[in-house]
């Protein structure tokens, strides 16, 4: 079972994101060491791994929130040093683990701000995008005038995803979208992730809920202590005894999501 040598996602049709040898260090501590991954167009790729493995660090570095060394090629262009505003302008969006909503502002203002970069570049179609996002999340439309900070955890997560979608991203990066949410909401979030892929959005999904992530993803990476420990097509990784033991816990047919 040497998945790391047998499989590679390099064959994915038209890579949207290619990361090679990405390194991030906090002072002398290396949080990410030579991590490489590929997201193909229209794919859902997931990164699973324990707490502190460097998953969030990796997303932050790709987005340009954190400084890094390595190569990040997005949509065919190599970024020497990714820079947040530029990455947003080019169609990459990150839904961070902490949501980072504008708590005192209304749901609708939060959403409209998601289109800021497009608006700034002269693409003023946010009214229409807003309707599309509302169609995907009817709940947000009901609460459009409510302050974002007063909503429930699940609604806030939907708002964070909706806000990112307002930028019409080519690649959506989700950091622990199911963290701290009730199982029913988690299911709803994963349903939306699958729906987004159907609409042609490529997705890089970082999850601790490995079971749900492997079920929805096409390809998966396992990150351990800052390094890619395993990779492979998601359904194969879900059958890998090491993955089952370390991340899926009990037998894989005890599926939490289908209850």
């Amino acid at each position: 079972m040497t998945t790391e040598t047998v499989h590679s996602n390099a064959g994915a049709a038209q890579p949207v994101l290619e990361v090679k040898d990405l390194c991030v260090s906090y002072g002398k501590v290396e949080a990410l060491t030579n991590a490489s991954l590929t997201v193909g167009e229209g794919q859902i790729v997931t990164v699973i791994g324990p707490n502190g493995a460097g998953k969030t660090t990796m997303l932050s570095a790709i987005m340009g929130v954190l400084g890094s060394k390595g190569r990040v090629a997005f949509d065919g262009t190599l970024e020497v040093v990714p820079e947040v505003e530029r990455m947003v302008a080019r169609g990459m969006n990150l839904v961070p683990e902490k949501r980072e909503l504008f708590g005192e502002m209304s749901v609708e203002d939060n959403l409209v701000l998601g289109a800021f970069q497009r608006y700034r570049m002269g693409k003023r179609d946010h009214a229409q995008t807003l309707e599309e996002v509302y169609a995907l999340f009817p709940r947000l439309k009901e609460r459009r005038d409510q302050a974002a900070g007063t909503m429930s955890g699940g609604e806030r997560q939907m708002l964070a995803v909706g806000r990112a979608l307002m930028a019409k991203p080519k690649l959506l990066m989700l950091d622990e979208p199911s963290l701290g949410l009730a199982p029913l909401i988690v299911r709803e979030i994963f349903r939306i992730i699958a729906e987004l892929r159907r609409r042609g959005v490529s997705i890089l999904l970082v999850e601790q809920n490995a079971r749900a992530a492997l079920q929805v993803a096409d390809y998966a990476y396992v990150l351990e202590t800052g390094q890619v420990a395993m990779e492979g097509p998601a359904h194969l990784l879900a059958d890998d005894p090491r993955v089952i033991e370390a991340y899926l816990g009990f037998g894989k047919h005890q599926d939490m999501l289908s209850t």
Binding site: M63, V65, V84, R99, L101, D109, Q117, A167
Partner: peptide, 14 residues
């Protein structure tokens, strides 16, 4: 938005 949440604003490209 920047005044409320700097990180969030930056992720919107502000």
């Amino acid at each position: 938005a920047t005044a409320i949440n700097r990180v969030g604003a930056q992720l919107m490209g502000i």
